[in-house]
Design a protein around this nucleic acid. Structure first.
Lengths: 160, 160
DNA sequence: CTTAGATATTTTATATTTGAAATATTTTTG
DNA sequence: CAAAAATATTTCAAATATAAAATATCTAAG
């Protein structure tokens, strides 16, 4: 092996490690934040994080969402969404409609109760996130968010 | 409300949004990466992500880890670890020992099979992470990892 | 029109996950 | 020492999660 090859090999190994290090830190950060938000949602509003996530997704779409859209947006399996929506329906926070020409699909909407319920939680959620991410200045947050946006669009392009 | 108060309110609202935006992007990025790694571990090695995570933690600690250490390190509940270790034990990848003076604790270790098994997977895992995070240059990755390290230590200090 | 394929959702079986309660053990305190 | 508090783990019930198979419906090719 020549000297330049040696250098190259060494560099590659370093690159490997830096990306793995990034991934592990990213994972740990989101687990920590997620855990804290889960805990606060539970103790304050007696709601689970998955239920909050579903409601947040539906709140952004006043026209409602298909089961498959929810599944894709939240990056969880179809069967998972079915169960979550079943339970949210039982609790009167969500309802299914069939106002489509396609009888395979069902459009899921927040009920009035669900919407009001979510608005309360969303306010706390926003405050909590700001508290938990307070070590990022707004400018840093903006910059980092932009970096992740670029990552997301690259990801989209590559895994489509 | 005076003009300066108006400005202040508006700035605060913007800060709020930038941190929430950051959190949502962080969450989506890690879910996407996690999902892809899960899929590849399953199809390539027929192993689940939680099992891989446990094995990775144990691989770094040749002396073994307590159940409670695993639970804290992986940020999952105690009961969760019990079940995972039960199943990994059944499959001969892990074993519990009691070589402590404290009979409440049990030290968990990778078996020889478990260690060999993990080494195989770890190589692929490193390559996959590098592929999936290829949109970050090694320098960017380094920088971002450092930012998250600072975040983690702030977090430690504040939530201890 | 009719059948093959595609699409949307649910069902099923199994694994993971949580949070609370129970159990076992150790440590601390009076 | 004995009781109380703390610690480590397991058990339990309910919810969440996955992947694969089943079901229902729609679309399109012939």
């Amino acid at each position: 092996m020549t000297a330049s090859q040696e250098v190259f090999k060494s560099d590659t190994a370093n690159d490997d490690r830096s990306r793995v290090r990034l991934w592990l830190r990213l994972l740990r950060a989101s687990r920590a934040i997620e855990g804290e938000l889960r805990e606060r949602l539970r103790t304050t509003y007696n709601v689970t994080l998955p239920r909050f996530d579903v409601m947040a997704a539906l709140y952004r779409e006043p026209e409602g969402m298909l089961m498959s859209q929810l599944s894709k947006y939240l990056m969880v399996s179809n069967g998972n969404i079915t169960g979550l929506i079943d339970r949210l329906t039982t609790d009167g926070l969500v309802h299914r409609t069939l106002r489509d020409g396609d009888r395979r699909t069902s459009v899921v909407l927040l009920t009035k109760t669900g919407r009001e319920n979510f608005e309360q939680m969303a306010t706390s959620h926003r405050e909590w996130v700001n508290e938990l991410l307070s070590s990022f200045s707004p400018q840093e947050a903006e910059t980092l968010a932009e970096t992740l946006k670029v990552f997301a669009s690259e990801w989209e392009r590559e895994t489509r």
